[in-house]
Amino acid sequence: MTETVDVDEELLSIGAFAARSRLSAKALRLYDRLGLLAPARVDADTGYRYYRADQVERARLVALLRQLDMPLARIAEVVDAGDGAAQARRLDAYWAGVEARHASRRTLAGYLRGRLSGRSLEMYGKFTVETVDVPEQVVITESRHILADELPAWIGASLGRLEEGARACGGVTGSPFVVYHSEVSVESDGPAEACVPVADAAAARAWAAERGRARGTTVRVEPAMRLARTRIAKAQVAHPQILAAFEAVEEWMRERGLTYAGPCREIYFADWDAAGPEDLVCDVAFPVTVAEAEPGVTAG
């Protein structure tokens, strides 16, 4: 929206303003359309844009933020935040996310180097793989299509909601787990299914019916199965370290000719908040055909 200006106020043409603000006329037109930097006046007859001299600082701020590869929507949040301190806080929040993503990519690049050179197990530790039998369970669940960057927060929140709901279903009777019905990555969104075993099937069905379809909540019977699994420490649950654990189990299965009998899963058997980085907290597991399973050995 074009601003109201005093008719006696000196205005700069778009060319003069572009030169002073170090932005191109093309960029200024784009930022006008996006509401980032509206001209002070637009000539009704010619369509020429005019800017006030005191808009230069905002224009330069936009230009500098663009050099950080900040998305235009985030730039709008910064420049409209109010005073300089509020703008700085918005910038800090954005940059913290950039650094976190960069650190994650650096770790992934290191993992990939180890994987391509055949050293991933050496880099991320040896994994003891074994088979275990799991009885039939009634589980209450939440399912969601989700990308990898949202996954850790969603796992914690969804399992928390389900454990709270389990109080109305006779209580929790086993370790919470997450089933990956399809790959979850930066490009593939699963779905993933958070599951909590409960004692009372009838109460679980009533609980799920009361919640309706909120958050993809369901109740189902998880059949008895045999799992090929490896136990990992809290520090190894982070991406991409956990990928090495999944690969170790799959390699162990390939060596023994075992058949996949269902989607892979993560089983959280320990108190996550109380655990230290080296404490075992999670099973990385694949259901396997019962007739072919063998005793556990060390992979890698």
Rank of each mutant, 00 (worst) to 15 (best):
265 R>Q: 14
266 E>F: 11
266 E>L: 07
266 E>N: 15
266 E>W: 14
267 I>V: 15
267 I>A: 15
267 I>T: 15
267 I>N: 09
268 Y>L: 07
268 Y>N: 14
268 Y>P: 13
268 Y>E: 15
268 Y>K: 09
268 Y>F: 15
269 F>M: 10
271 D>P: 01
271 D>I: 01
272 W>N: 08
272 W>E: 14
272 W>T: 03
273 D>F: 09
273 D>T: 14
274 A>W: 11
275 A>F: 12
275 A>E: 07
276 G>R: 13
276 G>L: 08
277 P>M: 13
277 P>L: 09
277 P>F: 12
278 E>S: 05
279 D>G: 00
279 D>S: 03
279 D>W: 02
280 L>I: 05
280 L>K: 08
280 L>W: 08
280 L>F: 07
281 V>K: 04
281 V>H: 04
281 V>G: 07
281 V>M: 04
281 V>T: 14
282 C>R: 02
282 C>K: 04
282 C>Q: 11
282 C>F: 05
282 C>I: 01
282 C>A: 12
283 D>R: 09
283 D>A: 10
283 D>V: 02
283 D>T: 12
284 V>C: 02
284 V>S: 02
284 V>F: 11
284 V>M: 09
284 V>T: 08
284 V>K: 11
285 A>F: 02
285 A>K: 07
286 F>L: 08
286 F>S: 01
286 F>W: 09
286 F>R: 04
287 P>M: 05
287 P>H: 10
287 P>N: 13
287 P>V: 05
287 P>G: 08
288 V>S: 05
288 V>Y: 14
288 V>H: 10
289 T>I: 04
289 T>K: 07
289 T>R: 12
289 T>P: 02
290 V>M: 00
290 V>N: 04
290 V>G: 03
292 E>N: 11
292 E>V: 11
292 E>I: 06
292 E>R: 15
292 E>F: 09
292 E>H: 14
293 A>V: 06
293 A>E: 03
293 A>H: 04
293 A>S: 06
293 A>K: 00
294 E>S: 05
294 E>G: 09
294 E>D: 06
295 P>S: 10
296 G>L: 01
296 G>D: 10
296 G>C: 12
296 G>I: 07
297 V>S: 12
297 V>I: 00
297 V>P: 00
297 V>F: 02
297 V>L: 05
298 T>K: 01
298 T>V: 04
298 T>E: 06
298 T>N: 03
299 A>W: 03
299 A>F: 01
300 G>M: 00
300 G>Y: 02
300 G>C: 01
